[in-house]
Design a protein around this nucleic acid. Structure first.
Lengths: 348, 348
DNA sequence: AGCGTCACAGCAAGCGCTTTCTATGCGATA
DNA sequence: TATCGCATAGAAAGCGCTTGCTGTGACGCT
């Protein structure tokens, strides 16, 4: 049988209550007693029973982090930053919390199921990262779930995700629209007039916002967009590769390709090269996010840097109640245009 | 107050026991009764209390995944694969399990603390990924912890980590030594005789094994290694950049640089280019792991592909008891040499 | 000396669920 | 028709911990 609190109490010749108090350090215990208890704990190799303590105390030390794709550094970086603030072992004082990274794979159902699972575990906080699905019924379901979580005392923070009104959730949102617009304006400024756009999956807020920014820039400069210039895909390299070939097929006269994110942009570069086109002499390419590898592309990728680490850290702190939420519960985080070698003036 | 099992029972006019049985589906319940209960659950919006049920049933649906750096795709990819097999929502039948990804940051203490936390939560299984620290006392502490976990019924699986003898842990190990050797032999075969090596952090099994493979290749071909040719660093791009400059300073006549992993290799490429050297005409570069972005480097990176996804999936299945452990509890997974553009014959 | 005040420590009542054991009603069997 | 077995449902005893409340000496106060 495993060792219980009572065993430790017996060995230390005190009551279970005292052992509990020593372990939680939230009640005065004489130094000599404490020491005796600690020794017993050590000798018996006692490990607290988490579920039992969570049940009795009606609190848990679990913090949920929902990501769309943990294999994507975009989420990995945010998750890492959040977790480092959550505490976990090595964190600052206070209870040690267990960060639970949940991989939804971009599926609405899994997102919902994970939220229920976290609710079931009475999680102390939940951080949702990245874009949300725009499917209406699902959005409503998520919103209602978030509200319930918040009502139950779970702190809910959205990081890099648009605000969910009326849910009591704090939102740190990326200005995807602004970034997208700035990026395209940079290209237009270089003289481009025929721009392809490789979007992410439809029905994702991130996808829509970036695309809206792109179109706003076109419109602001009186460029009429050709519907053939937009292709939807996934947020990965292969999708960028295929979409670029498709774009080239539809209109070989394009002089620039704007991608939904950096991975897609890398795929685009590969496709262009394989098609015998030079970057940026023949076609300029731009990405989004500025992930670590983007600077290593050749030529280095022009992109919009999102402060993933900083945003994640802040979300983590807010989730832990260690930082004031922004006024109104909403903060918009802007990206920064990084002009690098992959963008240049259009060919003749 | 939150809704409890008893509330549901009252509403459905049955005993709490029956509700529990309906929810767990592990005991015959008349269809009509079941339906009544389910309706009550729905109407009351009832959510099971995880800790309470874990306490009573003495089991938990948590599965821990320990990674050194979640922001690194190497771990992200494995974690993703493991998690997809763990089930979680969307997984196949059986209890829904919550995968807990724990980021140790490569710190021995955090690793240990996380293991204790998981032990406290009575985790159903634990998967440790990536190389282990070679610090003797720490290794012993981890081993003893793993043994205790195993004794307590937690399934322990090592993925991409050397076997921990006498702990009852199943190990899926990468053949880092073999891969390192093959890689260097490829370079030697091309004619290189002066090879720099950028290693990872010292006291890591992965670092040591890859380096040993490299040295074995040199020795097998009668090349005497110059101590100046090895530099230790971290497993990231920046480290690769700096180490390469250092290598170049120490011996400008090197014709090839072998890096501890792909990120490091990318940093090395950048440093070489910034130093005015062409790849592979002036210096060949090789990485390890074959992460998705490695093929996008220009020239594409010669490296050793590790089947991260497959290994992770297998580890996940074993952790869930859905696949037989390998005979002896140990399986070695070989990497595959990927020869690409970044390696070529040495310059004059 | 008498009494209020502390600083500790223990008692015992749960926290919300699972599960063993014990009814109970019914059709099947002899 | 009496008996047995089966399919269901309930009663109740925990699971291992936390915590409000209740002692109980030792001290300091008037």
């Amino acid at each position: 049988m495993t060792v219980t609190l009572a065993d430790v109490a017996a060995r230390a010749q005190v009551s279970p209550a005292t052992v509990s108090r020593v372990l939680n350090g939230n009640y005065p215990v004489a130094a000599s007693t404490r020491e005796r208890v600690l020794r017993a704990v050590d000798e018996l190799d006692y490990v607290l029973n988490g579920p039992a303590s969570a049940l009795a105390a009606a609190t848990s030390d679990l913090v949920g982090i929902l990501v769309n794709d943990i294999a994507d550094p975009f989420f990995g970086i945010m998750a890492s930053a959040i977790q480092s603030e959550i505490g976990g072992p090595g964190g600052r004082a206070g209870g040690e919390r267990l960060a639970v990274v949940c991989n939804t794979g971009g599926s609405p159902e899994r997102e919902l199921t994970y939220l229920t699972l976290l609710q079931r575990q009475r999680a102390a906080a939940v951080v949702l990262t990245g874009g949300a699905m725009e499917n209406a019924p699902h959005a409503a379901a998520v919103a209602s779930k978030l509200r319930k979580l918040a009502d139950a005392g779970t702190r809910v923070v959205l990081c890099g995700r648009p605000p969910a009104s009326d849910t009591g959730a704090i939102a740190l949102t990326f200005d995807n629209r602004g970034g997208g617009r700035e990026l395209t304006e940079h290209l237009i400024g270089l003289g481009h007039r025929r721009l392809g756009y490789i979007a992410g999956p439809e029905e994702r807020t991130t996808t829509r916002h970036r695309l809206e920014g792109h179109r706003a820039a076109l419109e602001a400069h009186g460029i009429e967009e050709d519907p053939r210039w937009t292709v939807y895909g996934r947020y990965d390299r292969q999708s960028g590769y295929e979409a670029t070939l498709e774009l080239l097929r539809r209109d070989p006269s394009l002089t620039a390709v704007v991608a939904a994110n950096d991975s897609v942009a890398l795929g685009a570069c590969a496709a262009l090269r394989d098609s015998g086109l030079r970057i940026p002499e023949d076609v300029s390419v731009a990405g989004f996010d500025d992930l670590p590898f983007s600077i290593d592309a050749v030529p280095a990728l022009t992109t919009v840097r999102l402060p993933l680490s900083e945003a994640g850290a802040r979300a983590g702190r807010i989730a832990m109640g260690r930082e004031e939420p922004p006024p109104g519960g909403i903060a918009t985080i802007r990206g920064e245009l990084m002009v690098r070698g992959s963008s240049g003036g259009p060919r003749e």
